[in-house]
Structure formats: structure tokens, C-alpha cells
Design a protein around this nucleic acid. Structure first.
Length: 425
RNA sequence: GGACAGGUGGCCGAGUGGUCGAAGGCGCACGCUUGGAAAGCGUGUGAGCGCGCAAGCGUUCCGAGGGUUCGAAUCCCUCUCUGUCCGCCA
């Protein structure tokens, strides 16, 4: 949610953001409604003031006749107030809908365009050229007995899966490996609930309802399965006022992530690449407004350290305006090389880092007070993937496979897996 | 799941229809005092919204929502959360 005051002050920037993102929302309608809400609020304040004055007058001794007259006036004032309140709440609902449709501002460096227009910032490592017939991760899983997609489909449905044998060790090892790096970087770790209330989900800018929603809802409870620990970590500080000295806040969460993948039919979705459930270690940071760009870089640097340790070739891209979610001001993705993807391998998204500035924080009411200042300000919030397990396991298997069918475990991960190689079998 | 007891400011806690945005205490900030500190004394100390350049003024908020009343923290209804006991359980 944008600052309502910014609607008229930064009208052109907002219109530009809508255009570049391809979002169909009208700043001017929102501005007009905002004016109407303010006027109505002023009217309500006036009506309440008259009513308060009238009540004060009612405290004195009155004759029976005057008391009756006083009661009559009170009833009339009460009706006036309730009429204005009714109008105001209708106006406010319209305004909030219009305001909620407006996306965040866009960082000056964000490239224009859609999914294919991300700007490559840099790469690390080189895609490996195999001197044998490389397999994709599905073939590796089946040869080494690491996953069971058929059983997943039978028990839960398409895009659900079982991990088996060393893949289970990899799953747990990736959590420990990533947490170790995050602890070193000063993060406070959490294991979060895998569910959250719909208003928390909405507070982070995810739509919990509708046909295209990515979010699963639980049928007999007012709860959603979280799509990321960003939701539960963001909710952690909802409605609070932080001290400036507490910032920046670096927290990390391990959770399962559930996604409906509605509307994803036909997209690259082989095996572990696009699944309904996976485990993820997430970073989440809360900063002063002037510190969020630097924190964005810090988060990206941690992600790169993690993937360098896993010896995966990757590239970093600056996501284009049309591909940003509404809350994101800027987003970096890390795409790992996946040899089994497409024809002869391709880059596949494996991690991302978003600076959402104050967009989520405003709705979640997360504020801070500067040293010596009286007014509270809205914080900036950022999130980034430390390790998203399903896709990372995919990348590890495909990149580190060996001629004899075995898979090498990168050195940095070995202490957590407890072995140096998987297979051959 | 059943029974009972409660949700008041950063915290504790008083308040059962008008004098209550709310006593008192703790905490915190500033000042006085002191060689320095403690103690003591004094002053201040919630959030949101509207109008205003600002100072400020107004307004809303005592778990949430509704109701009674000229007037509700206080009375009534619904919901919710917490605590305790019982049951069940990894």
C-alpha cells in the first residue's frame, strides 16, 4: 500500500509505475477519492465536536422540560453523526480499493519490459560441458532412487513428490548449510508456522483469494498455507513500533512453501522445477528508508556466497518493470545453470531478492522512531531466498553428475550431508 | 472438546453510567540536588486520522463488532484471544 499522501505529491511517478508494470489502475480516481474521504472526515470531526459539546451541557441540572428538549437534540445529533459515518465508511472502502490497486514505485535502474527483458548484471562460473551423455535430474533421481513422483501423484496429485534416500539428506543439509551462513551474517533464525491468517497474507501483498491465486486456503479454517516464510516473518513485527537502534533487523525463517501454480500450465515444469510444496530458507530484513538499497545489495551478496559454495554456475539479473510484483521496488533474481532444462540446458530461477520499501510495511503497520524524533516513520522491508530446496537439489544433481552416474557433493555441503558422493548404484 | 476466570496506556494496576484518554505505581527522558553516584524532589512521557507552513486545534481509540442511553471503559448481545482446571493426544 502506498502512502496516501504520495498520491497527489507523486502522481506522475505513480502513473508511470502503473504504465511500466502494465498495471491497470487509475491514480486520478484514487486521488479524487482521497480528497472526498478527507472532506468527509473533517465533516465527521465537526459533527462529533458538536455532539461532545452537547453532552458536556447535559451534565448540569436541568428542569424536566429542558431535559426533554436536551434529549431531543441529542437524538438529532446522534443521527447526523451516524449518517456521516455511514457515508465515510463507504467512501473509505472505495478509496482503499483504489489505493490497494496502485503498485509500488520503481527504482530508477529497473529495466523496462516484461519477463524476457531482465538485465543481466553479472555471471559466476561457467556452464559445464560434459564429456559424456548428461542426464536431467529426473533420470538421475530414478537411477539413484532419490525421488518418487508417481507416488506423489497417487497420494497427493500432480506436482507433489516424495524425496528418498540421499535426497532427504540433501534437503536437510541445505537448511543447515544456509543457516550457518546466515548466522554468520547476523541473522536471527526462526522456524515459522506453515500457515497464516488471510489478512497477514494480504498484508504482504499476496492475494489470498481469486481464481489466479497462488495461495492455498484451508477449507475449514480461516487460514492459508504460506507460499513463503516472507509471509510469516513479515507478520512477526506487524503492528509494532521499533526503536531506531534496533534497526536493521535481520531475520531468517525456515518453512515449507505451498503454491497452487494456478495458470502455470504449459510452463517449464519438469520434475522438481515447479512443484506444489518445497522447503525454503528465507531472509527478511527491516531497515530505515535510507538503508534499504544497501541492504538489498547485502542480501544479494549472501545469496551469491551460498551458490558459490554450492559450486553452481549462475547469473544475476535485474528484473524488468513488467515482471515485478506490486510490492517490489526492485528485484534481483539469481538464475542457476540447469543442464537438463530445455534443449542443452538453460538458466533457471533459483533465488530472488526484493526491496519492497515501505509498501508492505505500511499495511502491516511496522514503524520506527528516530532517535530524538517524535514522529513515527514506516520502515522498509526486504526479502530474499537463501535456499529454495527443490530447485537447488535439481541444480546440484544436474551440475555435479559424473560419468559413472554418481553425483558429487560440493565440499562446502559435505559436512552437512555426511558424505562426498551419491551413488553410483 | 468441557468448565471457570480474565482482556484498560511501554509494563503493573484502579476504575460499575456524566467530574475518565483514563488515578496510583514501575519504567523512560529532561532538570534540580551531589565531589561523583544512589536516594530524593520537579517536569514530561500512547497511537491513528482531519485541518494547518507551523505552533496548534479538532476527532477517534479502554480485545473486536453490534446494541441500550441525551451521555458507555462502566449496562446488554455476539465474536475473539489469554490464563487455570479436566478430557484427548505426538
Amino acid at each position: 500500500m502506498l502512502d496516501p499522501r504520495s498520491i497527489s505529491e507523486r502522481r506522475d511517478e505513480i502513473a508511470e509505475s502503473c504504465r511500466r508494470r502494465g498495471v491497470n489502475a487509475d491514480v486520478d480516481v484514487a486521488a479524487k477519492l482521497h480528497g472526498e474521504v478527507s472532506a468527509k472526515q473533517t465533516e465527521l470531526n465537526e459533527a462529533n465536536r458538536r455532539r461532545n459539546e452537547h453532552q458536556q451541557a447535559g451534565k448540569q441540572q436541568l428542569s424536566d422540560e429542558d431535559r426533554e428538549a436536551h434529549k431531543g437534540e441529542g437524538r438529532a445529533l446522534k443521527e447526523a453523526v451516524s449518517r456521516i459515518e455511514h457515508d465515510l465508511s463507504a467512501l473509505r472502502a472505495d478509496f482503499e480499493r483504489a489505493l490497494g490497486d496502485l503498485p509500488n514505485f520503481i527504482h530508477a535502474s529497473v529495466p523496462d519490459g516484461g519477463e524476457d527483458d531482465a538485465r543481466e548484471l553479472h555471471t559466476s562460473g561457467t556452464p559445464r560441458s560434459f564429456d559424456f551423455e548428461a542426464k536431467d535430474h529426473l533420470e538421475i533421481c530414478s537411477a539413484l532412487d532419490l525421488a518418487d513422483f508417481e507416488a506423489g501423484a497417487r497420494v497427493a496429485g500432480q506436482k507433489w513428490y516424495y524425496l528418498k534416500n540421499e535426497a532427504v539428506l540433501l534437503e536437510l543439509a541445505l537448511q543447515r548449510y544456509s543457516l550457518e551462513i546466515l548466522l554468520e551474517a547476523g541473522f536471527t533464525p526462526y522456524v515459522t508456522p506453515d500457515v497464516a491468517k488471510p489478512e497477514v497474507v494480504a498484508g504482504l501483498g499476496y492475494n489470498p483469494r481469486g481464481d489466479e491465486t497462488q495461495i492455498y486456503s484451508i477449507a475449514n479454517a480461516e487460514l492459508c498455507l504460506v507460499g513463503t516464510a516472507e509471509i510469516t516473518l513479515g507478520g512477526l513485527y506487524a503492528d509494532s513500533i521499533l526503536q531506531e537502534s534496533e534497526l536493521p533487523l535481520r531475520i531468517a525463517g525456515v518453512s515449507h512453501c505451498f503454491r497452487t501454480e494456478a495458470g502455470a500450465a504449459g510452463r517449464e515444469s519438469k520434475g522438481l522445477y515447479r512443484v506444489h510444496q518445497f522447503t525454503k530458507t528465507e531472509m527478511f530484513c527491516i531497515t530505515r528508508p535510507e538503508d534499504s538499497d544497501a541492504m538489498h545489495d547485502e542480501i544479494l551478496a549472501i545469496e551469491e556466497k551460498i551458490f558459490q559454495g554450492l559450486e553452481l554456475p549462475y547469473r544475476v539479473v535485474d528484473i524488468a518493470s513488467g515482471d515485478l510484483g506490486a510490492p517490489a521496488y526492485r528485484k534481483f533474481d539469481i538464475e542457476a545453470w540447469m543442464p537438463g532444462r530445455g534443449d542443452g540446458g538453460s538458466w533457471g530461477e533459483i533465488s530472488s531478492a526484493s526491496n519492497c520499501t515501505d509498501y508492505q510495511a505500511r499495511r502491516l503497520k511496522i514503524r520506527f522512531r528516530r532517535e530524538g524524533e517524535k514522529k513515527n516513520e514506516t520502515v522498509h522491508m526486504l526479502n530474499g531466498t537463501a535456499v529454495s530446496n527443490a530447485r537447488t537439489i535439481l541444480a546440484l544433481l544436474e551440475n555435479h553428475q559424473q560419468r559413472d552416474g554418481s553425483v558429487r557433493i560440493p565440499e562446502a555441503l559435505q559436512p552437512y550431508v555426511g558424505r562426498e558422493v551419491i551413488g553410483p548404484r
